[in-house]
């Protein structure tokens, strides 16, 4: 529902657009921060391609956080984005230099690789699941993305995908998982 208030600040408007699923908001967010991020990466041994890559990663993480309700507005969104980029870039540099990464920043961003699940996302196994996901039907794919990526509750998923209720969605999710496991075996 669109807010009746006109005085939402820039950050609040951005968050609202993302919660509404407006991907154009992400594009705007990207372009607003491109200069700052590029300057940072270029000053820290990177090039423009690195900067674009980091910024893409960061805005996608930001999108995930907001959409899944895990985003805490403790600092400006641009500050949060910058903190993500700093973490990602320090990790990448550390990998390049075989050094240990620095400590987390107090800007509200916790390194995703601290979680066992997030650590897996970059793995080869996850890449195979990614590939297998493309082989199952679109309704299943949508359902699994809503549950595992956007972390939506079953009630929401049932409403979005047009199931009768949450129980139906749960049953469907079980079938979709099985379909994905079968596809994964084929990929392997």
């Amino acid at each position: 529902m669109a807010s009746p208030l006109l005085f939402l600040n820039k950050d609040a408007r951005l968050l609202e657009r993302i919660r509404d699923g407006d991907e154009e908001a992400l594009v705007d967010f990207y372009e607003e921060n491109r200069g700052v991020i590029s300057a940072y990466i270029l000053r820290n041994s990177g090039n423009q391609e690195d900067a674009d890559d980091m910024l893409q990663e960061a805005v996608v993480i930001f999108w995930e956080r907001v959409r899944s309700g895990r985003y805490e507005h403790t600092a400006k969104t641009s500050t949060f984005l910058f903190a993500i980029v700093k973490h990602l870039w320090s990790r990448r540099l550390a990998r390049k230099r075989k050094e240990s990464p620095g400590e987390n920043d107090p800007d509200g961003y916790v390194d995703p690789e601290d979680s066992p699940l997030d650590a897996l996302v970059a793995s080869e196994e996850a890449a195979r699941v990614h590939m297998a996901l493309s082989r199952i039907g679109e309704p299943c794919r949508a359902l699994l993305l809503l549950f595992y990526w956007e972390e939506r509750p079953m009630d929401d998923i049932a409403r979005i995908l047009g199931f009768a209720n949450a129980d139906t969605a749960k049953a469907k999710k079980y079938q979709c998982k099985k379909a994905l496991e079968r596809a994964l075996k084929e990929v392997a």
């Binding site: 674009d52 996608v60 699941v129 998982k177």
Partner: peptide
């Protein structure tokens, strides 16, 4: 289960990044 979740999350991220790149007119990563 964790592997499935990670794979699906990866798919979501990569898809979103691809759409973002397309909208921005950037080259593929």
């Amino acid at each position: 289960e964790r592997l499935l979740a990670a794979g699906v999350q990866r798919a979501g991220r990569e898809d979103l990044k691809a759409r973002l790149r397309e909208r921005l007119g950037l080259s593929e990563g």
